[in-house]
Amino acid sequence: MALELKQVSIRKGSDPVIDRVSLRIENGEVATVMGPSGCGKSTLLSAITGSLDPVFTLSGDILLAGNSILETDMSQRNVGILFQDDLLFPHMDIAGNLAFALPPSITGYDREKRVAKALETAGLKGFGKRDPATLSGGQKARVSLLRSLMADPEALLLDEPFSKLDQALKAQIRSFVFQQVKAMNIPALLVTHDPLDCPENSQVLALELKGDPDA
């Protein structure tokens, strides 16, 4: 099931943004991409999820469970993503947000059961009917992760998911995320600029600033 980057290069016009990056992440492993703002971390994530802006050109290959996903439509890649903003849908309750992510193969009462169970594992029992706006930052972050995982992704990308949380909360959510990834047994790629976010004993890929990819 591993997620593999093979000699991935991304250019914007003639400017290189990412230069020949290779990485292999095994199931249950959390690898980290680190670098300062503007080094192309987000561009790399877009390449993996399939939302790369057409101004960029990509060479190399990205494999998921041994198959190239470059030609696969974004919605078919099975790559989940977690942002620093929770991006919970404000017009649905918590249960609705989670049920939205569940595959359609789970039907009827089973959906409610799955949602309730997921909330319980995250220590949010009985939160199903709550409005997302009434949750604390930590609670939102947890729901947001749960939602990403309920879609049964084959890989998970974490786009600076802890950067908006305070120190105490950060540690708590971090371990919650890593725990969940382990339990799901999928590869995960964490993007951050904070060395303290990295899980212990993990692969770290450090990117450097090359020009100004956002300009």
């Binding site: 999820t49 919605s75 890649r77 790559v79 989940g80 991006l87 404000p90 939602r147 879609a151």
Partner: peptide
């Protein structure tokens, strides 16, 4: 509506773009 991130999240869960629109964005 934060259209772009919402589409991003929805699609990363395997939703077709049109479906994200009708299930999430149109109601908003």
């Amino acid at each position: 509506l934060r259209i772009e991130p919402t589409l991003h999240v929805g699609q990363s869960m395997g939703y077709q773009k049109e479906q994200v629109w009708f299930k999430v964005l149109v109601p908003r």
